[in-house]
Design a protein around this nucleic acid. Structure first.
Lengths: 228, 228
DNA sequence: CAAAAATAACAGTATTACTATCATATAATA
DNA sequence: TATTATATGATAGTAATACTGTTATTTTTG
């Protein structure tokens, strides 16, 4: 990925934030340190007051960037999915063969995250851990329909849709391409969680990866089109 | 199911509660009304104070049954999984053919819940909705390992394991039976959620059910044993 | 009927999730 | 360079939450 991505920015719905955290030093510190703190203490224990102390800024200053910590989580999640989407599109763009293309996409979407030097103030490894542990909480709310309407989940939906399209390209007779796509994305987070906390409920471990499991699952399930 | 189950009790880990809510009228009202309220207002807005008002009892009296609302959620979830487990074992017990048995199990575990007259103070339809919308929050916490050690998730784990065994019985060469089992259970909740809030991300709707999707997925994936 | 147990009523505390006001530092511009 | 926006910091305040504690009253049980 290297230098090429230095100037790439993840485009996030402007309604999620009050002031763009990318637009100032304080904003970047909010993002950087909130990632460290949410990973460390979990989303429920994390507060703007504590974040203020950590970055030696003021609680009320943080509120000028995000209405509340829920919106901050939506921001971090959108950033993460946007970043993954970029990596996936980049990696699969040149592949013509539908099977190879889908295989690569699943690989990118389900593999363990490695640090990406392109975005200095975002720790992608920790962000991936946060998404595994906290993403569900961002949509399992009473406000989900309203927030969905306002476009807070567009990036994630677009990503599922891209996978959906690749599935259809490989097998246009498979009746559940959307469900399979959402299962891979959500299920991947879940398998990582189980590996960490409920190893009896998964076959994923040091030697077997969620990528192997889902690649196998998808390719057992689909029957490639025969009409060239 | 009918009368036979009138006397069946779901055995829940005693550490989850301070005092068994099944042991008194107040306890049963706590369960009954908390299900209605959590469904109605969502888990974050639900408080013991509000529950106290609703059941015309005292906040501090509720604390004599459950340490906090997190424990109450663990209780409700355990009850739900225990109930489902019972239904599944009951329905599959007599089936000898591994394929038929697994098919029936997936059907029970992923189908829409209908009211069960056997447990008068528990509304299973609402409880199912609560599990869809809130169950993840019960384990996506920093305390999950400690609570797992204390056995708060045994029923769920046992259920996944039962499904795992049925998968192995049908295809003992399939390399990911645990992951497939956990994917079916967790994925089913997720597909129901998507159907309700993100219909673009699923193929499940009025005519297509999560049961059809997962039955198809599992049977495309497995290759039945040939050695009788 | 007495004693024990359960429940209710009420008060109190630390923390959370904000909102509001005002002071000060920094940057933009006239 | 002086003026003036704008961003940030410091401080205070509020309603609600998530409890704990004490005492009074009711209910159950032996």
């Amino acid at each position: 990925m290297d230098r090429l991505m230095q100037s790439i920015r993840i485009g996030i719905n402007e309604k999620i934030y009050v002031k763009d955290p990318e637009s100032s030093d304080l904003g970047k510190r909010i993002i950087e340190q909130s990632i460290l703190m949410i990973d460390e203490m979990g989303f429920e224990s994390f507060t703007f007051r504590k974040l203020g102390e950590q970055i030696k800024s003021n609680e009320s200053s943080i509120y000028r960037y995000f209405e509340n910590k829920h919106k901050l989580l939506l921001y971090l999640a959108s950033w993460y999915w946007g970043w993954l989407e970029y990596k996936m599109v980049f990696a699969t763009n040149a592949i013509m063969d539908p099977a190879e293309k889908l295989k690569k996409a699943i690989e990118i979407l389900t593999q363990t995250v490695k640090q990406d030097v392109a975005f200095s103030h975002v720790n992608e490894i920790l962000l991936n851990k946060i998404v595994i542990n906290e993403y569900s909480k961002s949509y399992l709310t009473k406000e989900v329909d309203q927030e969905n309407k306002e476009g807070y989940f567009v990036i994630y939906k677009r990503l599922v849709n891209r996978l959906h399209e690749m599935i259809v390209d490989l097998d246009n007779e498979y009746p559940y391409p959307s469900s399979l796509a959402s299962t891979v994305l959500e299920g991947s987070l879940h398998q990582y969680f189980l590996r960490e906390h409920f190893p009896m409920l998964t076959d994923c471990n040091e030697t077997t990866t969620p990528t192997q499991y889902f690649t196998d699952l998808v390719f057992r399930t689909l029957n490639p089109n025969t009409n060239g």
